[in-house]
Simulated assay, not measured.
Amino acid sequence: MDSKDKKRIAIFASGNGSNFEAIAKACAEGRIDAEVVLCVTDKPGAYVVTRAARFGVPVVEFRPKDFASKAEFETMLLGHLREKGVDLICLAGYMRIIGDVLLNAYEGRIINIHPSLLPAFQGADAIGQAMKYGVKVYGISIHFVDQTLDGGKIIAQTAIPYEGSDRDELETLVHAQEHILYPATVQKLLSSL
């Protein structure tokens, strides 16, 4: 498939960007029949910017506080997304709730990965919430993004049995599974767009 015929992905991230790298690498290796054409971060200087540079992916860095409203910065982002012809938005540790501007423009084409078996442990620090609760099976969910917090229709999930108490060890297990499940789910989803 010619590069201009490939589906085009934008990845939104606020931090380290390991899932950005997993998706970009899967595209580069042909495991996802698409290309990552844009990285968006609300944290200028976040490590995801370094990862994007290694893959030659342009980055839009912005500070929400520099805009009068969420609608204003999402309108700016929408301009970049349209300019790049983005087909799918993948949230990968993007710590902002998506608003109406992007939801309306990309309805059914924004997905998120969350480190729990939704609907359990929604919101920030899902792993910490689950550990505090004492669960014996952790997990990952990939879901469509809607107006609710981690509440959109679930696309894929995987369970991670773990009965230890070492958060670093658990996070390593969760990330390893994310880096398998997210690219596979993106490939499957793109075939239906």
Rank of each mutant, 00 (worst) to 15 (best):
N16Q: 09
A53R: 12
F12T: 01
A52Q: 12
E169M: 10
D125R: 05
I155G: 00
P115W: 15
S18R: 08
G30E: 05
V86N: 06
D146I: 01
L91G: 00
G139N: 13
E83T: 03
C27N: 04
Y162R: 04
I160K: 07
L193S: 09
H179D: 11
P58S: 11
D2Q: 11
G108D: 09
S165M: 10
A24K: 03
E83N: 10
G108K: 03
I111Y: 01
D87W: 12
Q157T: 05
F20C: 05
E61D: 12
T172V: 07
L102E: 01
K136C: 05
P115S: 15
A28L: 13
E178D: 12
K6E: 15
I32D: 00
I154G: 05
G128C: 08
L77S: 07
V40F: 00
V135I: 04
A28R: 11
L78F: 00
M131G: 03
L77G: 05
G45I: 04
G85S: 11
L91E: 01
Y138R: 09
E21N: 07
G85C: 07
I154N: 07
P183V: 03
L173T: 02
A71S: 15
D166R: 04
G108Y: 09
E72H: 03
K188N: 08
R31N: 15
L88I: 03
R96G: 12
E29L: 08
L193C: 14
M131N: 08
S3T: 07
A53K: 08
M1I: 07
S165W: 08
A159G: 12
N104S: 13
A22C: 13
P119R: 06
I127Q: 15
I98E: 01
F62T: 00
V37C: 14
E72R: 02
K7Y: 15
G56E: 08
G45D: 10
C27E: 05
Q147V: 03
E107K: 10
V49M: 06
D87N: 13
V36S: 07
L193M: 14
I155R: 02
K188E: 10
Q157S: 07
C39L: 09
S192N: 06
G17S: 11
Q122K: 14
T41A: 05
N16C: 10
I155E: 02
A24F: 14
L38A: 11
G139Y: 09
F73K: 00
V86G: 02
T75M: 01
G139H: 05
A53P: 00
V57D: 00
G15E: 14
H179V: 02
A26W: 09
L103V: 04
L88S: 09
V145W: 14
K7E: 04
Y106G: 05
A130N: 07
L81A: 03
I32E: 00
Q157I: 03
V57C: 02
E178V: 05
H175E: 13
G56Q: 10
I142H: 00
N104W: 01
G85A: 10
L91T: 01
R31S: 07
I98Q: 01
P115V: 06
V59A: 13
A22T: 06
I180Q: 15
L117A: 10
K6I: 02
A10R: 04
I9A: 13
L173S: 04
